[in-house]
């Protein structure tokens, strides 16, 4: 079971994680990651706008979710990613992996984020006052994704 959603609206982390395992008796654990907007400017007027490629974004996230299910035999996987204008403290992304045992859940959740960071077509624009700049991709994210190469 894979749930992938790309949306402007906020999400309720607790409700989403509850829904992932509701009525299930075969799940031993759920590992999740919630990404938030940090106050990168430090001056209190920071905002972040996430742009994405509608269609391809969903396709890439579904492929990443399917890969995780296949590699770790997950009982459930969840990816929610927001787009649009966000403020410091706002939720950006939620990934979760439900598995029989904790190691698979932890590893799969880390894999979901590492692949999402380098494959899902999102771009972050940071604005502070009159200044704006597009966030640059990090080599450390490529290295993290490369760990999962087969």
């Amino acid at each position: 079971m894979a749930i992938v959603r790309v949306q402007a609206a906020d999400f309720d982390t607790g409700a989403e994680l509850d829904a992932l395992t509701r009525g299930r008796r075969d799940v031993g654990g759920v590992a999740s990651f919630t990404g938030l907007v940090r106050d990168f400017g430090g001056s209190g007027d920071a905002a972040m706008t996430l742009e994405h490629y509608p269609g391809m974004t969903e396709r890439e996230l579904e492929a990443i979710a399917a890969e995780a299910v296949q590699r770790w035999g997950l009982q459930g996987v969840l990816i929610i990613h927001r787009y649009g204008r966000l403020q410091p403290g706002d939720r950006i992304v939620l990934t979760a992996a439900a598995a029989a045992h904790r190691q698979a859940a932890f590893d799969a959740c880390m894999f979901l984020m590492d692949w999402l960071k380098t494959r899902a077509p999102f771009w972050k624009l940071e604005e502070t006052g009159d200044e704006r700049h597009w966030v640059e991709a990090k080599a450390s994210d490529d290295d993290a994704a490369a760990k999962w190469a087969k």
Partner: peptide
């Protein structure tokens, strides 16, 4: 065909 910078989501 889409052209874009390296992605920076998450």
């Amino acid at each position: 065909v889409a052209l874009f910078p390296p992605v920076t989501g998450g």
